[in-house]
Amino acid sequence: MNPSLVLRLTWLLLKKDLRVAARSRETWVLVLLFAILCVLVFAFGFLREGGDGAEVVPGALWVTLQFSATVALMRLFSAEEEAGALTTVSRSVAGSAPLFFSKALMQLIFTGGVTLTVLPLVLVFFGATAMPIGPTLAALLLGLLGQAVVGTLVAGLMLRVRQRDVLLPLVLYPILAPTLIAGVKVTAISASGGDPEVIATWLRLMVVFDAVFVLACPWLYARASGP
């Protein structure tokens, strides 16, 4: 496989996805509204007069982002499905790798955009603006990267499966459990002013998770999307 060709076609497909998203807007609007709604539900559900809102931040933040990311995943291949172009695009001169990488990057861009909206909302609503944000940002970056590559693989493989909207989270979350737990732990420990060494250990676990799946997922996708 020619890496420069893979990169060039990945960029081409990513530009196409960004253009389609900018013109249709439906996924952006849908995911953002869903995320804001989740934050509001958590705020009304968990905030009590005199209670410590910061305790709820890890759960509210990560659950909101994971739910929103799952909604985005369900729409990730919708342009290809609508066009009936999945086979042609996954059989480019560089194989299926450009499609996989462009979709994973698109998912990362989507969830990154949602994070930029949701994180300040959560911190303000739950009165946690004084919380050290560095470790949480690192955990979010690693967690969303893992979610994007594993999610793209699972969403791509389920395109021909009936009831995939139900099955996708059922298959996805058990795989993501280690990185999700680590991410929530990082946010919880940093919110309570815990030991930086423990935070670093959880972050290392997330790095290992990402490294394994960033290498494995494109290969698995290529194997599974062939004839």
């Binding site: 253009r19 009936g84 450009p98």
Partner: peptide
């Protein structure tokens, strides 16, 4: 089915698919 992206113009589709075909 035509196999074209609906949000792209025909020109954009042809340019994209030609690149994917090398």
């Amino acid at each position: 089915r035509p196999g074209l992206y609906l949000e792209l113009s025909a020109v954009e589709n042809v340019v994209l698919f030609a690149a994917l075909a090398g």
